[in-house]
């Protein structure tokens, strides 16, 4: 499917001692929610930091928005970025966060910020609670409130779902959806996550990053056409294993992900073909590329 992009990257490379982020071509579709999935240490946060302009030591070229702006400093006002960890000074109070965001960003709406804080139950309502006294989940909510209260064109959210409870994850999906809808196709969201199943209903496009490389990407519907879930009887397990992209078996039967183009090779076997979830696809792709030894 053809799309215009909100951020374009070419030959993005960042070398560490034992790891290299190497992305020859990179495009985030405009007007959609894109999930960045990958195992720990795959390079998700590094990539997010590069895109947000809080890490500048990399090689390659990035272009932002329709203007193809290459200087990230000029577009920071239009990007809302949240990161795990100490994003705000621990001694800042919620009210101070509001004042500081108002100072740092021209298009920050204080009323909206207070409204979001109220809806998300952050602090005690008077804004006196300090960041240090907030739980991890509430800190993430505060970060989200601070970026959602701004008029931005793109959100870069690094692991927004991780510290949130299941109810709030659902709320996060709703917020992302509302953000996209309010932009009439002009707003985009790029988020990294380990909670693929919780975020699936808001994900339009998915990138899978392994060992610093994008190993798979595409619109979710396209990925679901490409990767199919196959279930079968134990007697066919050995034969199916040779065909399947990923395989897990037990004494009762097996299941695995099969590439649609290989489906014909399962002819004659008693198998059931279903649509895979995004989570199942991601796990299968990650297993295929991971360097981890997951089984004894």
């Amino acid at each position: 499917m053809e799309f215009t992009s909100v951020i374009d990257g070419a030959n993005i490379c960042k070398k560490f001692k034992n790891f290299t982020l190497d992305i020859p071509e990179f495009r985030i579709p405009k007007g959609f929610a894109t999930a960045l999935v990958g195992e720990n240490g795959a390079g998700k946060t590094t990539l997010m930091n590069i895109l947000a302009g809080v890490r500048l030591d990399y090689q390659g070229k990035l272009e932002y928005f329709d203007e193809r702006e290459q200087n990230v400093e000029k577009v920071k006002e239009r990007i809302g970025y949240t990161a795990p960890g100490l994003y705000f000074m621990p001694q800042w109070s919620i009210r101070q966060v509001e004042e500081i965001c108002g100072l740092l960003f021209d298009r920050f709406d204080r009323e909206k910020f207070r409204d979001i804080c109220g809806k998300l139950n952050i602090g005690d309502g008077d804004g006196k609670k300090t960041v240090a006294k907030l739980s991890d989940g509430n800190r993430m909510k505060l970060m989200l409130a601070s970026v959602l209260a701004r008029e931005t064109d793109c959100l870069l959210l690094d692991e927004p779902a991780s510290p949130l409870d299941p109810l709030m994850r659902d709320g996060l999906c709703q917020m992302i959806r509302e953000y996209l809808e309010s932009g009439d196709g002009e707003r985009s969201v790029f988020f990294s996550t380990h909670n693929v199943s919780d975020m699936e209903n808001v994900t339009d496009y998915c990138m899978i990053l392994e060992r610093g490389r994008i190993v798979e990407q595409g619109f979710v519907e396209e990925l679901k056409e490409k990767y199919l879930l196959v279930k079968g009887e134990h007697c066919d397990a050995e034969a199916a294993k040779q065909v399947l992209y990923s395989f897990s078996g037990s004494s009762y039967g097996f299941e695995g992900i099969c590439l649609a183009k290989d489906l014909d090779r399962l002819a004659g076997m008693d198998v059931k073909v279903e649509t895979a979830t995004l989570s199942q696809i991601c796990v299968a792709v990650m297993k295929a590329y991971t360097g981890l030894q997951l089984t004894a």
Binding site: A52, V54, K74, K76, A83, G85, M89, S146
Partner: peptide
């Protein structure tokens, strides 16, 4: 301002996302 210059803890994440 306690810990504002501590290396690696990135207390200034929010500030770094704004040009000013």
């Amino acid at each position: 301002f306690g810990g504002i210059a501590v290396k690696g803890t990135d207390h200034l994440g929010c500030l770094k996302t704004s040009a000013r």
